[in-house]
Design a protein around this nucleic acid. Structure first.
Length: 356
DNA sequence: GATACGTGGTA
DNA sequence: TTACCAAGTAT
């Protein structure tokens, strides 16, 4: 068989697999339905950045019900969208999501750009997302490369160069096997394959539709591809958080700065997070320290947050910007997971305190 | 190219 | 329990 035929066989095999085994996902138009809605495709792609399908499901349902189109999302207040995103992580995505929705609503007349280049210029839309939306929502031929595609392609061609140096080589190989027609289905098929068969650990090579096309399956350890450099150890950091409660059952919450960890999110007042954080509370009160610090692991460091709580007078106002939030409604504040857990620990301690 | 940026699931 | 991993982007 000629090389070009071999190349075409990969796309043909994969699309045949996809026609039968495509996962049913909420953002995928059912077979025979109208063309995909760019808003829903874009929203799903942003949510899925570094995030599992399982985690995205409930958020996608919540967002599309509450904001059915880009105009509705663009018109929403920042705090509402940030709170709705709470728990999903990578909060810069939520800030960029709003900025993007408003750019589409204002600068593009409510319609998403239909080219990779146009999409790429939007906030929070990088090379991957621009290619994915162009291909899936607009039927363009685009070379879509995410972590799944990197893995599948590195194995298909047994690419021995370690990541990230292998990226240009992998992109080039993906370009070669991407078909002119159905590039969107091809991309989704590659991702389905990577998520269910060509998995990072214990790939199911025995049932893989590309087994006959794969170079890695002929090696001793197909799962060894792509080759990756070892990761650095995470540093451990310490921090303090303060739960300030008023007699009428309200707690003091702040909004974190847009830049940095948990940027733009509601939070408890807290210290810097480092080797020796300043544990001076934001105000003078009778502080009680919660016995067990909240242990939390972020992408590049782990944190032990010591939580303190105090009851203050009804007329007290802590320093800085913030708001009194009803403790009974704390679940609606949209606290990122670290602070949701800190709040939980503080409230538990508070009950203990009340019994004394 | 390297680093910052969340969270929950899996082995 | 530690370590890795998941539909990346911005700087």
């Amino acid at each position: 068989m000629r090389v070009e035929d071999n190349i075409k066989k990969i796309a043909a095999d994969l699309l045949a697999y996809y026609d039968v085994h495509a996962r049913k996902l909420p953002w995928r138009a059912p077979p025979g339905a109208n063309a995909a809605d760019p808003y829903r495709i874009w929203l799903s792609e942003v949510m899925l950045q570094q995030t599992t399908v399982a985690a995205v499901g409930p958020y996608f349902a919540k967002f599309t019900k509450r904001w059915p189109d880009v105009a509705a999302l663009a018109a929403e207040e920042d705090a509402e969208v940030m709170a709705a995103w709470a728990g999903l992580g990578y909060y810069a995505r939520a800030r960029n999501l709003l900025a993007c929705a408003r750019a589409v609503a204002d600068a593009h007349g409510g319609t998403f750009p239909d080219t990779e280049e146009g999409l790429r210029a939007l906030p929070g839309v990088g090379a991957y997302t621009a290619a994915a939306v162009a291909a899936i929502a607009f039927g363009r031929r685009a070379v879509v490369v995410d972590a799944n595609v990197e893995r599948v392609v590195a194995r298909l061609f047994a690419i021995a160069t370690p990541l990230p140096a292998a990226r240009p080589e992998i992109r080039s190989a993906t370009d070669v096997i991407t078909p002119d027609l159905r590039a969107g289905d091809f991309a989704q098929a590659m991702m389905d394959l990577g998520a269910t068969i060509c998995t990072a650990r214990n790939p199911a090579c025995g049932i893989c539709p590309l087994r006959d096309d794969c170079a890695a399956v002929l090696t001793a350890d197909p799962a060894a591809f792509p080759i990756k450099a070892a990761k650095k150890a995470k540093p451990h950091r310490l921090g303090h958080g303060w739960w300030i409660e008023r007699p009428d059952g309200h707690v003091w919450l702040v909004r974190r700065p847009d830049k940095g960890m948990l940027g733009g999110m509601r939070a408890l007042p807290s210290s810097e997070w480092n080797d020796a954080p300043d544990g001076t509370p934001p105000l003078v009160a009778r502080w009680r320290r919660v016995a067990e610090p909240v242990a939390h692991v972020f992408t590049h460091f782990s944190l032990a947050l010591t939580v303190h709580h105090a009851h203050v007078g009804q007329d007290v106002t802590p320093p800085g910007d913030g708001e009194w939030w009803p403790v009974a409604e704390i679940g609606r504040a949209g606290l990122p997971t670290l602070f949701a857990r800190a709040a939980e620990a503080a409230m538990k301690e508070g009950k203990k305190d009340a019994r004394l």
